[in-house]
């Protein structure tokens, strides 16, 4: 954690459990860290520019929104074109996460992972067919793993023991 100074770290620790839902949430962080509100805002801006903070906002519960079908679609894409296919798949509006990952042969031949959400499994299957069309003959095999249950969801937490 060498790239974060102790004040950055204190700000993140104060903010990561959630911003206060009050008119001036950054002032609340400032109070708990012991610096000025303007400093908090400037530092969070720098952390966003550096990519340490990807965004500030909400994460909804997909199930509560009615998006009860959550499919991790997985694809065995020829290595030579896997990056190119990944870029195209990742650009689809209904794909929320898309990664190239190593295969775990022999049991796991898939190297491209694309998360697709829908209100029904039929909707996810329709989207999966769109991905298959896009991947074309470079795709040798595919599968979809539906989620049955969220067992844990806390996000990344910094432990409080310093860098």
């Amino acid at each position: 954690m060498s790239s974060l100074d102790s004040i950055d770290r204190s700000i993140i620790e104060a903010a990561q459990a959630g911003l206060a839902i009050t008119p001036c949430p950054y002032a609340e962080i400032a109070k708990s860290v012991g610096i000025g509100e303007a400093d908090v805002i400037v530092r969070l801006g720098h952390l966003m520019e550096r990519g340490v903070v990807r965004r500030i906002g909400v994460a909804p519960n997909h199930y509560a929104l009615g998006l009860i079908a959550n499919g991790m679609t997985v694809w065995d894409i020829e290595d030579e074109v896997a990056s190119e296919v990944g870029r195209e798949v990742g650009a689809l509006p209904f794909v929320t996460h898309c990664y190239l990952r190593p295969r775990a042969l022999p049991s796991w031949p898939y190297n491209l992972f694309a998360m697709v959400h829908g209100t029904t499994r039929d909707e996810v299957e329709t989207k999966r067919r769109e991905i298959a069309l896009l991947a074309g003959p470079a795709c040798r095999a595919c599968d979809v793993l539906y989620s049955k249950r969220i067992l844990k969801k806390t996000g990344l937490r910094l432990s409080g023991n310093g860098g």
């Binding site: 990561q16 959630g18 903070v53 500030i56 906002g57 909400v58 509560a64």
Partner: peptide, 25 residues
């Protein structure tokens, strides 16, 4: 929305890699 769990998190989303950390599925 936060109390009823429709919104599960409100705040900064961190990139572990940018902090020298790592994610792994």
């Amino acid at each position: 929305l936060a109390e009823t769990g429709v919104v599960t998190r409100f705040g900064p989303f961190l990139d572990a890699a940018a902090m020298g950390g790592a994610f792994c599925l």
